[in-house]
């Protein structure tokens, strides 16, 4: 437990050390997106389209999935180049604890981003979640999935810089085809089938269900099933990548 808390405090200290960058990523960028796409573009569309209510949960979903990548990706990549991974591996904890602490760090950053963007959504678009508990559940599951996903992508390749390229390549389609800027019911075949393969779809649709239960969204039970299947696939993969790369540390 001490190690988990220490690593969380270290992540917080690292974020503070890069406070300007952190503020731009966590506050300024989502605020600009919400203002332009939600307020300005949303205002140009017919009122019944309710585009602001469609895209705002998508922005919250993006915060949930990018936070883990920034925290875990930053730790793994700087840990590779500056060898801080080695310092953490020399801490008197098991590999399982180190993985739990790493994943928790990613989740906390993802949830912090969700909290900030939720406030921005309320301030800029006047929208508040109707089912806050479901928002927290979906956002936490999303942050967990992308913490595990980041570990797989960065630790499975020979070096994490190769993983970073793969991540950039995957992140774009996941965001654009994963129902972040539109809802699932707007899609037609074959894109609706493709979207079902992407975890971002379930996160964004779950957040839509939390924000506006009356508007079209994927059924919450389908959201939970999708998130559970994704976790069941990603958890063993992340554990395997973590143990393979860090159990016999050759970097």
């Amino acid at each position: 437990m001490n190690f988990l808390l220490a690593l969380l405090r270290r992540n917080f200290a690292a974020d503070l050390a890069a406070a300007k960058l952190t503020a731009v990523r966590m506050v300024v960028q989502p605020a600009v997106y919400l203002f332009v796409f939600g307020h300005v573009v949303g205002g140009m569309l017919p009122a019944q389209s309710g585009y602001a209510a469609v895209m705002a949960p998508g922005m919250v979903a993006i915060a949930a999935v990018t936070g883990p990548f920034v925290t875990i990706g930053g730790s793994v990549i700087s840990g590779y180049y500056f060898r801080t991974l080695e310092a953490w591996l020399l801490a008197p904890v098991s590999l399982g604890t180190l993985m739990a602490a790493t994943v928790l760090g990613g989740m906390v950053n993802g949830l912090a981003g969700v909290g900030i963007v939720s406030v921005l959504v309320w301030l800029i678009l006047g929208l508040a979640p109707q089912a806050p508990a479901f928002l927290v559940l979906t956002a936490a599951a999303g942050a967990l999935l992308f913490s595990l996903f980041t570990l797989v992508v960065l630790l499975a390749p020979e070096t994490p810089d190769k993983g970073q390229e793969v991540f950039s390549f995957l992140m774009m389609p996941m965001t654009f085809f994963g129902c972040t800027f539109y809802s699932y019911d707007m899609l037609e075949a074959p894109f609706n089938w493709l979207a079902l393969l992407l975890p971002t779809t379930y996160i964004a649709e779950g957040l839509r269900a939390a924000y506006t239960p009356a508007a079209p969204h994927m059924d919450p039970s389908a959201v939970l099933a999708g998130l559970t299947v994704a976790a069941a696939i990603l958890f063993p993969l992340a554990s395997w990548a973590f143990r393979r790369r860090l159990g016999h540390f050759t970097w």
């Binding site: 270290r10 200290a13 690292a14 050390a17 700087s78 500056f82 060898r83 801080t84 310092a87």
Partner: peptide
């Protein structure tokens, strides 16, 4: 003390 320094560059 490993051969290469492993200090946390953010701190």
């Amino acid at each position: 003390v490993p051969q290469e320094n492993n200090l946390d560059t953010y701190l």
